[in-house]
Amino acid sequence: MAGFLLRRLLIAVPSLLGISLILFTVLALAPGDPFSEMATNPNVPPEVRESLRASFGLNDPILVRYLRWMAAMARGDWGFSFASRINVDTLILQRVPTTILVIGSSQVVALLIAVPIGLYAGIRPYSLLDQVANTLAFVGFSLPTFFTGILFILVFSIHLGWLPFVYQTDLAASGWRWWWEGFRQAIMPVSVLALFQAASYTRYVRAAVLDVARLDYVRTAQAKGLNPRSVTLRHIARNAMIPVVTLVALQMPIVFGGAIVTEQIFRVPGVGSLLITAMLANDTPVVMAVTFVFACLVVLFNLVADLLYGWLDPRISF
């Protein structure tokens, strides 16, 4: 196991370098210009724009820019945002806590809903609960978050007036009221995301359970007259967790990267909304930094998933 881990970590470094080079190239080639506002503004002479381009190093070849970026990154210098002229790491760090809080809790809620329901539905396929869960799940992923988000706002903020729909990071309250207000404003974004996620998780868990439940060793265990409960937990759940672990590992980087649509709807100042604004403004240093951290997390969690497979099913070897 240790050898495997070491090997994988060693591979991770060059593979991340390769990914970062490709990311950088895509961003450099993608259309758009960080100084577009300047160009359409009759007040700014083209020379100023040109000198800014030069001072930001945008006129150099892509490879030179990439090497410069990497050298700076290695020194811990993330560069600065073209749009706000602030250091990129400061910008990202301002967003991380909110993102982890909102997106992270939605993932937890989604799993808490999906795993038990999926397990039950998988063990008793076509039972009433299974049918209901299925139908709700289909509704869940037929409706995109931009739609459910607005539906929630109309019902809970405007019609009933129970919840605020603009997320604020600096709440004016203090003490328990601060916690309460913070909780209230997180309800809608978290549930919109959690329900969307839970819909697909439920279906995956159910499918995995169905598959596993039919395998020979489970039948053997059942035939041996083992307690059905322990069969469920020890034999089925454990093996059925493999796809779930895969999915969670796929989702974990998003806990950092944010959910762009939901963040826009509820104005959650997360990394997702930072990323989309930066993309629209062609603020390449920010986009590059966020996607690179995201890529690191993707690689990391893929590795974690592989380790967990080995734990869930000791026969798995690489």
Binding site: S15, G18, I19, P253, L280, T291, F294, A295, V298
Partner: peptide, 23 residues
């Protein structure tokens, strides 16, 4: 083959979609 294919998968997961689509 497995690490290579997983590298490609990770790469695609990391690609920022909006700039890529515009490209």
């Amino acid at each position: 083959v497995d690490p290579a294919l997983m590298w490609v998968t990770d790469l695609f997961l990391s690609l920022p979609q909006l700039p890529l689509l515009l490209l």
